[in-house]
């Protein structure tokens, strides 16, 4: 639209992230013959796809200086709710619609407690996390088991396993669409601009007549909607819904955002950063797998990565000022 793509001035760490990704890829190409295979890439993308979907909205929340710990629980809740409804005879499209609305309700609730009642977001969204997670388990239980798998209609998996042109998994298509939408929101809409303004200076935003509460509620609702839809997608792909799938999702999402250069205190961040951050996480896990390193060291690596990312962010900040 504007002719050429201009990277925002303040995200000088983006080239560094690209550099890291390139180095990781070169390294993995050399040490592992399996790395450059299409199947492997598709695995990586499938893995980080859900993170990107959720992080794209959660990132905007972080840009306003808040955060959302309930995404994992909302994802699990939505998967279960969707499966439960489909199993009990509600048509799949209707079930998807109801589930998305239910998911958004959680988000609106978060937005209300954080934006209106001004409860610290960690606490408010932790509360929602417990409620949504508990309900997810309960619904599974009402269905009579720990998971919902048997008795789902045949068409249940159609959405999650759909391939565009018979080749591209739907989640990848969605990631591209959602990333584009959020790039668009970031650059072209009031919502995006106001998010940055609120994170930068909340008081000035209020005095400029920005409806801070409304923006925060919309963002939480968006975040929950994407978490909910991801839950539907995930359960549809594997053909089963489990109440514990979302565990630790919130912290992965947080890591992805922080890696991508989003400041916890708000005012800075981008969807491009989220994509790159997710790519780094994906490559790291994939690399460690390919190298045959035990999964528990991946947890250690993830923790180290988070710490290094924050240190890098702090350094780039101190250089500027």
């Amino acid at each position: 639209m504007t002719g050429k793509l201009r990277l925002p001035r303040f995200q000088s760490q983006l080239p560094i992230l690209v550099g890291i990704i390139v180095i990781m890829m070169i390294f993995l190409t050399i040490v592992s013959p399996n790395f450059l295979k299409a199947q492997n890439f598709s695995n990586i993308l499938l893995k980080i796809g859900i993170y990107i979907l959720i992080a794209s909205a959660a990132n905007l929340i972080m840009i306003t200086g808040n955060l959302d710990l309930s995404v994992g629980a909302v994802l699990a809740f939505s998967g279960i709710l969707h499966a439960y409804m489909c199993k009990h005879g509600i048509p799949i499209p209707l079930s998807i619609l109801i589930t998305c609305l239910a998911a958004m309700t959680w988000g609106v609730f978060n937005g209300f407690t954080v934006g209106k009642l001004r409860i610290v977001p960690v606490v408010a969204t932790l509360g929602t996390m417990y409620m949504a997670e508990g309900l997810a388990f309960l619904i599974a239980r009402w269905d009579g088991g720990t998971n919902i798998m048997l008795g789902l209609p045949g068409a249940y998996t159609r959405l999650g396993r759909y391939m565009l042109f018979g080749k591209i998994p739907i989640i990848i298509v969605l990631v591209v669409i959602v990333a584009a939408i959020f790039l668009f929101i970031e650059k072209k809409t009031k919502l995006g601009r106001f998010s940055f303004a609120i994170g930068d200076n909340r008081s000035a935003a209020e005095l400029s007549g920005i409806n801070v509460t409304k923006v925060i509620i919309i963002l939480y609702a968006l975040s929950a909607l994407l978490a909910g839809f991801s839950g539907i997608l995930q359960s549809s792909r594997v053909g089963l819904a489990a109440p514990n799938v979302g565990r630790m999702m919130e912290t992965y999402v947080l890591i992805v955002c922080v890696l991508g250069g989003t400041k916890m205190s708000g005012g800075r961040g981008s969807i491009i950063g989220v994509l790159l951050g997710a790519a780094i996480i994906g490559l790291l896990e994939n690399g460690l797998n390919l190298l045959g390193i035990e999964h528990f060291y991946q947890e250690v690596a993830r923790g180290l990565l988070l710490i290094i990312a924050v240190i890098a962010q702090k350094n780039s900040k101190s250089v500027k000022s």
Partner: peptide
Amino acid sequence: VDGIFGQLSIRANIPLMRMDSVMNSGLI
């Protein structure tokens, strides 16, 4: 404290009190 958005550019600061002034059919 109450006026500037320090991390945003001059271009991004100026329209914040009336975004309509830079919108074109709903988009910035």
